[in-house]
Structure formats: structure tokens, C-alpha cells
Design a protein around this nucleic acid. Structure first.
Lengths: 370, 370
DNA sequence: CTGAAAGCGCTTACAG
DNA sequence: CTGAAAGCGCTTACAG
């Protein structure tokens, strides 16, 4: 498939003029001492105006500020952190499989929301990529006092590890750890069961009776909760199994296929669903990305949406609006979730007593697919 | 469209047992002093073994390591940074519009490549989200000695600002600044003109003579370079303008439409192209994301690919393989670009003289769309 | 309101 | 090879 090009080695092209580029000069850094001297005050006073202490004369404030401006002074962070014993920095830990991670608009939204909220505070948000090869490295970083707290989105890496971490650092989870039991983590999340229930109920309300589902990776609690929401809603409506009463007794007959949240996996799952030969008139897909893939497959098989198969999903993003028809979905208010995670973490850092769990409200968005 | 739910306010649910959650205890931190004491050596020696100095007895090494293990000691980063006058941390600055940014697999790949390379070194990579509301904040952070160097991917924020920044901090650009002229930045990039030329030439070699193009946002140099590559290739082949000789004289007649790299914009651009009523048998789309959108539109209009319209594009990612047919494209080796950016930055930090420009090789990948 | 001084937790010449 | 000491650049009680 690929044309045969020997090896991928970066090519270095010489700079247009002259030889190797000279390294930037050692950059003369202004220091608090310099500022104080120029302003004619002590370091203490200079420090006070920099930190907005009210115990300084307006006179001093002006002179120090002038000196700062003139010197382009920026406080040295390491020194400040060391003295204050905190860093004014929080980290969002994200899994290294960034390709998959970032391609998922869900995470992008969480990050976006977190970043925006953080920028309204005086904390800096840093995304810490968790190296799979060396998870210890991430761990050490987190425990080295580099950040004042951490936001965790990884579902995978053993929550036991993070339980330990959360004993030495304020931590807020964006996902429910699998072994939730004794783990008293602070979490900000959405009610996934309810989201799935809303989407499924919508199909039922539209008169659909044979409702299939495409799930997310069932290793994660979110995907399991959504599956459970679908199932319990069908059961409550006496439609368990997605087709008829008989199937309720044998779960294998349930119309469920697993995907991994990518569009391709949604397409593949839809193919498998169709291959069963068991007719269905409703389909709840656990994410918009997968739904977009499933939609193409339904169309290829000559099935019209929503007429032949009504489809509902979860996530309100470009994947739910780029399709034809657009998807009826449950908006998880994901960017707000990011913001709430930061808010909770800062409260924790500030030593405030906050509740263990914060639930982000969800909302049905009706469009053309069901 | 949206069901009417009043206001989005996070819901806080009380913890199952007891009242508000107690904040984690102050975490007893082990210090170098403690380690030294436990190991029965001086802080100097303890520090030496921690930093792998060869000037220590094996005896000392063992005892210090034992103490470290026993105390779970992790060096305080602020103190170390202050003493060393460097941070062992580098930042990748990314624009705040993370939704759009992250949804683009291109950036995800760059980050991925950078993260993986960084994890093989003793530098930590942090993603710094550039707040649009307060770009100054990002700037101050960068100048406060929080990081040893920065990787820049933003095309927008005035490169003048970063020119200034690059005078006080090693900086490597992943995109070519617009006002390249006097700006002697270090950059790691791909030859966009050549990539477009390869893709366009491929269409010509397949006998296509009326070749249209969908460009990226022309405010960025990469998009402009790709447009230029398409144009110059057509001109060299005597096919300028995409249809006939006449159009070469009037550029307005050129079959070019601008997109913004999203699938939706690719679809819209394809619609506009078709609406012109000027037939074309070849289409070069500046990114796979846009190409996937364009493909849907072509299909909707009953045009078959590659028979009626042969399509080539740039970027080898899920968007170029999720389509039917899959896309013939130019692989930009994007994750390697991320790695090379880090490599260049670390060299700069180490004070090595590196070339101004590093070019990442590109490669044609033949698939079914042309 | 302001300064001198101690201290944050490390690293690193400097002697030995 | 090892230790005592100085110093990294800030902040913050403590006196005044």
C-alpha cells in the first residue's frame, strides 16, 4: 500500500546565512532584589506590593510597579513555590494514548471547560501526559510538589495507585473508579445510567419495541453504566432483550454489541448487529462518535433513519451534527464538567470541605434521528 | 431543538456516610535531610547519590537508596529547580480553542510524538493551554522560569510576541511563522508545498486534467503553502486553473474553495465547488478531515470516487481510512514531527548549536480514492 | 507601613 | 569520597 521510502530521517537544512545558529544569549533576568533597589525599598516591601498586600503605601506601590515594568520583572516561580510551599499549578492527568484520547471530542471538551475555568483563577492548568512506559515518572512528578492538586481522567491505570496518590495530594476524579467501594475519592461526573435511560426511553416513547444498543468498552464503568441504563429501561417497559419476552430469559439474545467509542468501532458493531438477522427498529448508541459510524452502515444496508431504525445517542458534539440526519442525543454538558472538576479541586486545595460527589446535569437534545 | 431545561447547575449529593468529607491529612513529607539522617550521611552525599554522581562509595549509595525507599522520598521540585536554576520541564503551548484543536487528529499526533520522545528523556512535557482571554498569563508563566523551553504550535498569536519570548527562552516552532522574514526562529516542519505537489501530481499522473482543490484556512502559512503547491504543479503541467488555459489568466476561475480543516467545512466547500457547475475530475483536499466531508457530498451528488472524481489529500489518520473508498494521501509523519520538536528543543536547552530548520520527510500512501 | 532576618529544600563549589 | 557552608530567589512572621 505504502510507497517504498527507505527510512524516515529528519532532514536538516542549513540556515540561509552563515553557519550554525548562535544560541540565544543567557537572558539577563531581573530579580526581586533588583526591583527593590530600583524602587528604593526593601525586598519585603517589594514582595508585598507584588503580592497585593494592603499594608503598603500607595507611594511604594507606584514605585515598585514602575520598577517592575522597567525591568520586565517576572517572579521566579521555583523560589516562590519553595517559599510558599505551594505551586499555584494544577495538573490534569491524561493517558498517553493521546491519539485516541484527543480524537475523542469528549475529552477535548472536558479539557476546554477546565482550561477556561482555570484561566479565571490564579491557577495554571497543565496537562500531564501519563507515560505508559513509565507511569512511575508521572507519579513522582505528582508527588514532587510540582502541583497543588490533580485532576484525573484516566479510567485505566489502577485506581489503587491513585488512591495512594490522593492521600498526599488533593485529587478529583472525572470518572468513577471501578472499585468504587472503599475508595472515597472526590468525583465530578454525570449519571451515565440516567443518560442511557433517557435516550432509550425516547425510543420507546416513539413506539419502538425492538431496541438494540452499541456499548462503549465495557472495561470502563461509564460504558457499563450506560449499558445498565439501556437494559433497565427496557425491562421496566417490558421490552427486555430488545426483541421479545423469550430473549429476556437468555441474555445472549440481547441485541448488544460492544465498541470502543471510535466511529469505526461503531460501524463494525452495527454490522455485527445487522448480521444477526434479528430485526430491530430502535438503536441506542453509547456515544455520538460510534453513532456516526453506525449510521453509515445502516444507510449502506438500505435502512432509513429514523423510519426503519430510530437512533439515539449520547454526547452533543460535531459527531452528532455532522451526520444526516443529525442525532437525537443526550448532552452531557461536558465542558461544564471540566470546569466543575477544577472548581472542586481548588476548593479541596483551599481546605474547604466539599462533598464527595458532584453530578453534572444532563439534557436531551431532539434532532432528526429519532 | 433543545428541550427546555432551566439552568445547568451542578448537583451536589451528600456522601453516603457522615457529613462533609474530611480533607486529607497534611501528608508528612520526607526531606533530603531526613534521608541523610536515616542513611547516616551528610545532605551533600545523599544529594550526590540521588543525582547519580560517581563520587560516592557503593556503601553510601546503598544506604541512601534504602533510606529513600523507606521514606518514600521524592525530591522537592521547587527547591531543586531553584538550586539548579532549571526545571527539567518543557511546555507545549496550545491554543485555547481546544475543542477544535484537539478534534484535529493532526495535533493529537504531534502531541503524542512529543510525549513519547519526552518520556524517554528526563524532561517532563507539559501542555500549556494558552488562554485567549489572558494571553499575558501564559506569557508570564513561560517567562517565570517554570519551564526550560517551549514548543509552539499556535499559528495565530502574534509571532512578534513569541519572537520576544524566544529571546529569553529556548523555543521551537512547529509551524512556520507568517512573517518569516526576519524572524530567526527554530522550526521543525514539513514541506507543505511539496506535500500538495505530490498529491496533485498523483492526480495528474492518473490522467486527471481538471483538478480542483479545497484549502485549509488561508490565514495560516501551511494552508497557503499547500494551495501554492497545488497551483504550481498544475501550472507546470499546463493545467493551471483546474480546467483550461483560459482560466489561467483569471484566477477567479480557479476551482478553489476554502475550508477550516473540519469535515463539515470540507463538505461545505465541496458543495460550493459543485455549485459552480464547472466540471472537474480530480480534487486535492488539503486535509483528510475535510476530504472525508467532501467525499460524502460527492457521493450524495451521485459522483463516484475515483471514477468520476479522483481524490487525494494530506494526513494519514483515521479520517483517511474511515472513508469509502479509503483516501490516497500524503503521510506527514506527524508524530515524528512532535518527537523532533522535543529533540531540537532539548538540544537548544543543552546549548548545542542546531540548525534553524528541520524538515520531516513525507510519504505518499496509495489507497482507493485516486 | 517597613526592614532585617530566617527559612523554604535542594545543589554544588570548596576544602579536606 | 565526604561535609560544612553558601546560595538559588522568594515569602513572611517578627520587631519596630
Amino acid at each position: 500500500m505504502t510507497t517504498d521510502i527507505p527510512r524516515v530521517e529528519p532532514v536538516v537544512r542549513a540556515a540561509p546565512v552563515g553557519g550554525a545558529a548562535p544560541v540565544a544569549p543567557p537572558a539577563p533576568v531581573a530579580t526581586l532584589e533588583g526591583v527593590a533597589a530600583l524602587a528604593g525599598v526593601s525586598k519585603s516591601t517589594a514582595s508585598r506590593v507584588i503580592n497585593g498586600s494592603p499594608r503598603v503605601t500607595e507611594q511604594a506601590v507606584m514605585r515598585v510597579n514602575a520598577a517592575i515594568a522597567q525591568l520586565h520583572y517576572v517572579p521566579n516561580r521555583a523560589a516562590r513555590n519553595l517559599a510558599r510551599r505551594r505551586t499555584q499549578m494544577i495538573a490534569m492527568v491524561i493517558p498517553e494514548r493521546t491519539a485516541a484520547f484527543f480524537a475523542d471530542p469528549y475529552f477535548a471538551e472536558v479539557i476546554q471547560g477546565a482550561a477556561m475555568y482555570a484561566s479565571s483563577t490564579d491557577y495554571t492548568l497543565t496537562l500531564l501526559i501519563e507515560s505508559e512506559a513509565d507511569a512511575e515518572k508521572t507519579h513522582r512528578f505528582l508527588q514532587s510538589g510540582s502541583v497543588d492538586g490533580a485532576l484525573l481522567l484516566s479510567h485505566h491505570s489502577s485506581s489503587a495507585t491513585y488512591l495512594e496518590l490522593s492521600r498526599s495530594l488533593p485529587v478529583v476524579f472525572g470518572v468513577r473508579p471501578i472499585d468504587d467501594l472503599e475508595f472515597e475519592a472526590h468525583t465530578v461526573d454525570v449519571d451515565n445510567m440516567e443518560a442511557a435511560a433517557i435516550a432509550t426511553r425516547y425510543l420507546i416513547d416513539r413506539g419502538r419495541t425492538r431496541i438494540a444498543t452499541i456499548t462503549g468498552p465495557l472495561g470502563a464503568t461509564a460504558a457499563r453504566d450506560r449499558l445498565a441504563g439501556w437494559r433497565s429501561t427496557l425491562e421496566a417497559a417490558g421490552l427486555a432483550g430488545g426483541s421479545d419476552a423469550a430473549s429476556a430469559a437468555s441474555p445472549d439474545l440481547e441485541l448488544v454489541e460492544e465498541g470502543d467509542y471510535t466511529p469505526a468501532s461503531g460501524a463494525a458493531a452495527a454490522e455485527r448487529l445487522l448480521a444477526r438477522g434479528v430485526p430491530f427498529d430502535g438503536l441506542f448508541v453509547a456515544s455520538a462518535q460510534m453513532a456516526s459510524g453506525a449510521l453509515s452502515v445502516l444507510r449502506e444496508h438500505g435502512l432509513s433513519v429514523p423510519d426503519d431504525v430510530a437512533v439515539t445517542t449520547i454526547d452533543n458534539n460535531s459527531f452528532s451534527t455532522d451526520t444526516k440526519p443529525q442525532l437525537t442525543t443526550v448532552d452531557l454538558h461536558t465542558s461544564e464538567k471540566g470546569a466543575e472538576m477544577v472548581k472542586a479541586l481548588l476548593a479541596l486545595i483551599a481546605g474547604e470541605a466539599i462533598e464527595r460527589e458532584t453530578w453534572i446535569p444532563i439534557e436531551l437534545v431532539e434532532r432528526g434521528s429519532a
